[in-house]
Design a protein around this nucleic acid. Structure first.
Lengths: 348, 348
DNA sequence: CCGTGATTTGTTAGCGCTCACAATTACCTC
DNA sequence: GAGGTAATTGTGAGCGCTAACAAATCACGG
């Protein structure tokens, strides 16, 4: 815990103590091959003794590489963003990059611009934006940055490189699962209009129903929170007995609210109404009843995002497409399938 | 999206274009008072036109200030760490600092040391460690860093500055609440042994019972996960009718598992067994039944942490103690108090 | 219109490091 | 041991910026 207040040793100090030139020290540190073993050992010993550490600013100045990436995110306490962030950092660190994060309470042109400025001041070489709102992506596209930017979770239509889970597919899996289980129709509680993921999930739901020749019923909207799910659930409860037997909820938190509302209204899940969520948060398996949901592989999303960003930064040729969609996976539990005790995998 | 591949403009470029010396540009950027308005405007226009940005490395090199803080954390997908991280970053940004994060899968002497190295390479001026495990704090105390370190969530006994929520108090609130509701005894499902928070909560629980002249029953242990709560819940269900009427669970996720296990065993909550959790995650309010729990103010924890770290970095005199405990708050819901909303059954 | 002090601007010298190149040394072969 | 090559080490410059100081400019009373 001691941290010397006096100026830390420089490379020149180490060089003097080891009886070599500063360049030799630099070579040792840089794993340069042409250094005599004896010299290397001597230098390393002095480094060890003095606790010397290269000055990152000086290094960055001359190499023009800070080896730092930026991440802009919001709602980092939610499972999706938090998981993505984690994967992002881990992948970046594996490549020797440091990750600096800016977490916004709300994404707007202004806050985004400030965030990018802040990161830019910090010398990041590139930025990953966890920007699920369409408006945020649009803003991002307008902003001019001196570094490459990759978006996580954007939809089509923007020319920024992006990585996301195939929400449309996820919604088809969920809706298809309910239809296959014999439900004549499936209702949908969607996320906020501005969210690309919400739009994609709603579109996937609609497409599946239409492909099955079913007229999609009224679409409800929430804001991802359990409370909004609870409110929507109360409304849904009113439709039980009038054709409502299955609901696809756009995320697990809202599904939790729906479950509570249905329970309070005396509606049994899954006997009266089957419910599917989206995300597979760690809690879902223990909901009442355990929730059938769609699992997203955030870790792959994060890794691919860093991969693309580094290609952009280092000017490497793209190994794969600059617009990647990861496949989600249906997890069947009791909320749609009473006989599923705790079992994951195969759709019915 | 454009990011020039050619070398970005330097201060000298701007100076030339504005017909002044680079130092004048520096003064404009540094808000130095002694610059003629006319000159300032001219310089600013050129900056605007060229899109010039100061080189952070060069600045850091000469000022010896990177204005970057590091955070080491693990389990960032959990509510507590995620919230703390968020608060930390927000507070740091308000002070003009950038935050670089390293997220560890597991905290050990080795991984911690690597993390600090990585941050050090990145030039951080100080580090906040979200290290709830005692072993991690111990390791941290051993590691020598060239910068100050503040720990979030450590307990007593270590000489590193720390900020945490008063877990002991939280546990007393929870346990006391159950006793006050008429329960003769309270069982406890604790967190992992190595976690300071788990130890503090268990100690608070024990102290409250002993103060009430009650012999604390067997203590169960989980790993914070809903699954471990579920398993413990199955065991607890076996004690119903043999004196078990109330359980204090060390976090909400495990409480969720307990609730499910009790439900599956035909035990009603709260009529047969009352349950209290800890954390107040956003989902708790919608559990079946809504969970009484203890809310922690992570945002304050984060702000105070940054405050202390900056005092240490900037050599300011401490405005407050270097060992801060924030007060938690009891949130009463249906899982202990049937009349809270619409839960029928006789009162305890 | 000069002197005085305040304001505004320019000049110089590093910060600590890596790169390019020069200089030195070691190692062969004949 | 000379000559050549390869391995090892040293030297100088400069990355882009700020701090300290020097120089120039201005305002204005006498």
């Amino acid at each position: 815990m001691t941290h010397a207040q006096l100026r830390p040793p420089t490379m020149a100090d180490v060089a003097r103590l080891a009886g070599v030139s500063h360049q030799t020290v630099s070579r040792v540190l840089g794993d340069h091959p042409n250094v005599r073993d004896e010299t290397r050992v001597r230098v390393l010993r002095v480094i060890e003794e003095t606790g010397y550490r290269r000055n990152s600013s000086a290094r960055a100045l001359v190499t023009r590489r800070t080896r730092t990436l930026g991440v802009v995110a919001s709602d980092t306490t939610l499972h999706g963003p938090a998981s993505t962030l984690f994967a992002l950092e881990e992948a970046a660190r594996a490549e020797g990059y440091l990750v600096s994060t800016v977490t916004l309470r709300k994404l707007s042109m202004e806050t985004l611009s400030e965030a990018l400025d802040h990161l830019s001041e910090g010398g990041v070489e590139g930025v990953v934006a966890i920007a699920p709102q369409r408006s945020a992506v649009a803003a991002l596209a307008e902003l001019r940055c001196p570094f490459p930017v990759v978006v996580m979770g954007s939809g089509p239509g923007v020319e920024i490189p992006s990585v996301s889970v195939d929400q449309h597919l996820g919604a088809r899996l969920a809706t298809g699962h309910l239809l296959a289980a014999g439900h004549r129709n499936v209702w949908h509680l969607a996320g906020p209009e501005d969210w690309q993921e919400a739009a994609d999930r709603a579109a996937g739901w609609k497409a599946t129903l239409e492909a099955a020749g079913v007229e999609p019923p009224m679409l409800l909207r929430g804001d991802w929170s359990p409370l909004s799910g609870y409110r929507a659930g109360q409304e849904l409860a009113g439709w039980v007995g009038r054709g409502l037997t299955a609901v696809f909820v756009a995320n697990d938190q809202m599904a939790l609210g729906v479950l509570r509302a249905l329970r309070e209204a005396g509606v049994r899940t899954p006997q009266d109404v089957a419910v599917v969520g989206f995300d597979d948060i760690p809690e879902s398996e223990f909901f009442a009843p355990p929730l059938t949901t769609v699992r997203q592989d955030f870790s792959t999303v994060g890794r691919r995002g860093i991969e693309i960003l580094l290609e952009l930064i280092e000017g490497r040729p793209p190994a794969t497409a600059r617009r990647v969609a990861i496949e989600p996976q249906l997890v069947v539990r009791t909320s749609t399938f009473p006989h599923a005790v705790q079992w994951e995998g195969e759709p019915l």
